[in-house]
Simulated scan of single mutants.
Amino acid sequence: MKVAIASDHGGILIRKEITKMMDELDIEHVDFGCGDEGSVDYPDFAIPVAERVANGEFDRGILICGTGIGMSISANKVKGVRCALVHDVFSAKMTRLHNDTNVLAMGERVIGAGLAREIAKVWLETEFEGGRHTRRIQKIADYENR
């Protein structure tokens, strides 16, 4: 699995924690920032990550900002992306099992680093269940393609 990860200025600490966790789990990943340049605009980081996931360059993406809301809205504008804003482990698992999410968004001002690590780990390790859920995912793709 290959993961793209990015944050704006509001998600730097959690991004670094999740990057460290992926190193520990030997998950291939590329960190697309942001750096220490101060306040930045979340779409400038969310959209490129989402595009790389949508075009198949990366299998999944992880985005972090202050609340996760701006990142998730931005990522979901990219055709083929199913980004879920998650702040608990159960939802992280269900977004993979039932919704085959390919981008995860979280908010650093909402959850701490420890919980963010747990959420990301479960999300990365959970496979799509398929079955009846495949039909539902296809309906979303069909709508996008209209």
Rank of each mutant, 00 (worst) to 15 (best):
M1Y: 07
M1H: 10
M1I: 12
A4Q: 07
A6N: 10
A6W: 04
A6C: 13
A6Y: 00
G10W: 00
L13M: 14
L13K: 15
L13G: 14
I14R: 07
K16W: 09
I18N: 08
I18H: 02
M21H: 04
M21V: 05
M21P: 07
E24C: 10
L25K: 15
L25Q: 13
I27K: 05
I27R: 08
E28V: 11
E28T: 12
D31N: 06
G33I: 12
G35K: 14
G35A: 14
D36L: 15
E37N: 15
E37C: 15
E37G: 15
G38L: 05
G38Q: 06
G38A: 00
G38K: 04
V40H: 08
D41W: 03
Y42Q: 10
Y42G: 09
P43K: 08
A46Y: 08
A46R: 05
I47V: 10
P48N: 00
V53M: 04
V53E: 01
V53C: 02
V53W: 00
A54R: 07
A54D: 05
G56K: 07
G56Y: 00
E57C: 07
E57F: 02
E57A: 05
F58G: 03
D59F: 08
D59L: 09
D59K: 13
R60I: 03
R60P: 08
G61Y: 05
G61R: 03
L63C: 07
L63V: 03
C65G: 00
G66S: 02
G66Y: 06
G68I: 01
I69R: 06
I69V: 15
G70T: 01
S72N: 08
I73Q: 00
I73H: 06
I73E: 05
S74H: 03
N76V: 00
K77C: 13
K77I: 12
V78I: 14
V78P: 01
K79T: 11
A84L: 14
A84N: 14
V86Y: 06
V86H: 02
V86N: 01
H87R: 04
D88H: 00
V89C: 02
F90L: 14
S91F: 04
A92C: 14
T95M: 13
T95H: 09
H98S: 08
N99T: 01
N99Y: 07
D100Y: 04
T101S: 15
N102G: 04
M106I: 10
G107Y: 03
G107W: 03
E108Q: 14
E108G: 08
E108V: 12
R109V: 15
V110H: 01
I111R: 02
I111Y: 11
I111C: 11
I111D: 09
G112C: 06
G112T: 10
G112M: 01
A113W: 14
A113C: 15
G114M: 15
L115T: 12
A116Q: 08
R117P: 10
E118N: 14
I119F: 04
A120I: 04
K121M: 06
V122E: 06
V122A: 07
W123P: 02
L124C: 04
L124S: 00
E125N: 11
T126A: 03
T126M: 01
E129S: 14
E129C: 11
G130D: 10
G130T: 02
G131K: 13
H133G: 01
T134F: 02
Q138C: 12
A141H: 13
A141E: 15
Y143M: 13
E144V: 07
E144N: 11
E144S: 05
E144H: 10
N145Y: 11
